[in-house]
Design a protein around this nucleic acid. Sequence first.
DNA 1: CGTATAACTTAGCATTCCTGAA
DNA 2: TTCAGGAATGCTAAGTTATACG
Length: 609
Amino acid sequence: NNNNNNNNNNKNSYRNNGFHRCALSYTVSVLSIACGSTTAGILLRYTQPGQQVHKICFGRWEEGRSQDGKKWKTLEHKGPLFPPEYEPLPQDVSFYYNGKPLRLSIVAEEVATFYAKMLDHEYTSKEIFQKNFFTDWREEMTAEERDLICEFSKCDFGEMHRYFVEQSEKKKDMSKEEKEVIREQDILLLCEYGYCLLDGHKEKIGNFRVEPPGLFRGRGEHPKMGKLKKRILPEDIIINCSNDSKTPEPPKGHKWKEVRHDDTVTWLASWVENVQGSIKYIMLNPSSKLKGEKDWQKYEIARKLKLKVETIRKEYERDWKSKEMKKRQKGVAVYFIDKLALRAGNEKEEGETADTVGCCSLRVEHITLHKELDGQECVVEFDFLGKDSIRYYNKVPVDKRVFKNLKLFMENKNPEDDLFDRINVSMFLLNNYLLFCNQLLLLNMFASLLSANMTLEEKLLSYNRANRAVAILCNHQRTAPKTFEKSMQNLQQKIELKQKQLDEAKAELKKAKSDYRESKTEKLKRLVEQKEKMVKRLQEQLKKLQLQMTDREENKVIALGTSKLNYLDPRISVAWCKKFDVPIEKIYNKTQRDKFAWAIDMTNEDFEF
DNA sequence: CGTATAACTTAGCATTCCTGAA
DNA sequence: TTCAGGAATGCTAAGTTATACG
């Protein structure tokens, strides 16, 4: 089934996808789909020459395959796609040292271009970035170059930078035909490298390209920003595939580091990255069966947790009064996670990454206790940097017992001491409920904000509001786009212009009316009608613009995608769409529909989380 | 059983694509 | 038809969780 159709309105496309996922290689058609909480059953019609058989295929996603830790039976692929080799600069473009042009060795030049390309980014103005870059760059130089190039301040990448700006302008100005040729080549590469064969089925790969070399750009105040991310060679790469499959060919003149056949993992290739020493993987796209099943499992666990959540809450409230300090800390930490959807907060190595924290790694300096604040009692003020160095700032009234405990935890401690010094994340994992407390909370909230008897637009607005509420709770932020202020101004101008037009139109209408009153000709009557229409249209346009303005303002720093993609059970959304007659394309775009194909397939309108 | 690290999910920013208003 | 600006997609960093290991 190579049904890559663009016809999104065709409901059958999901069905087709669905049975493609079902690991059958016959030509079949789906007669019906049934689903319970753990088992999805599909009634199929096998169409073979001269016979027709009906059969029920049960896919037990939960148990079954994962029992023995095997992730696949067969796996075949072409290996990753490498970035193009470095192309040296033209003769007339040069690096300058101490005011004089200097021709660099190929290797040193390549690293220099990484910096030159980033020159107009504010990263390059940071001292740590410059220092890390310069240190790593000098490592790549020849001995002579290293002798000569000793001071960063004497380096001038300006000409190189201008060259790259020029190049990208040229690229932009290419003709349609030229762009089309490039596009086609890209598609060919995608076809060749972008898919693999897993258990006999073609599946899309998520990231089939090896990450190109460049300068590391961490988030926030990362101590390693600017370090050289080295070029990855086939000799660095471990290939994973089944042993009877065709082993991918390394590029000419090269060898793989290793070819292994590990069916307990899902990755196709991996390598060690030099900046942090972590492993990078080539894995499947979220639309693949493998990832879909895992996602489904996640939500099933969350669903089971729903039945337990009251017990869990009672348990942690009891822990607040425990004699054991450890238990008290655990109780308060879980309370935070439940109430505020904080991340678990693993320990991390100091100096290796940006200084960010989650719940268990909160330090005394990150919270302030207020006996009373803005008319509320027992308020905890949080201020810390979380994942991706996104600031979490919140003032939360908490239970009195929690407040007392926090005071206790903070006694005789320095600001840089751990707030919860007796616990760590692994203690929660034993009970394995943290993450799902959050999800439950979010999902319930989400569901409760939706309702019937609305127009399509209102329904969608309500959906987005719910989505936004979840995103706010989870603190999913984005930095306002650089063009935000400008585009806001533009919009404001548009609104003003529209207002002016409206005022004028109104005046014209008034005049037309009075003209008509004086001499009741057909022509003037039509003019009045025309002006009335005009006013109405302008009013509508104005209202739309104003709505757009509020919506955009509200979304200024809120990122909706993350919660939609990772936290909200898609079956709730799908069921809601079916129940209230909202086309699924209105809430999920193509990528999202692909990722959630399993939910779209197996959910009917009476699904309850 | 605790810890290290491999594996895998979640996340925001950058780039590209597409659409709808002028 | 053009082009600004928003949506979609791509990329890879930064988390969490599972697993291996002593």
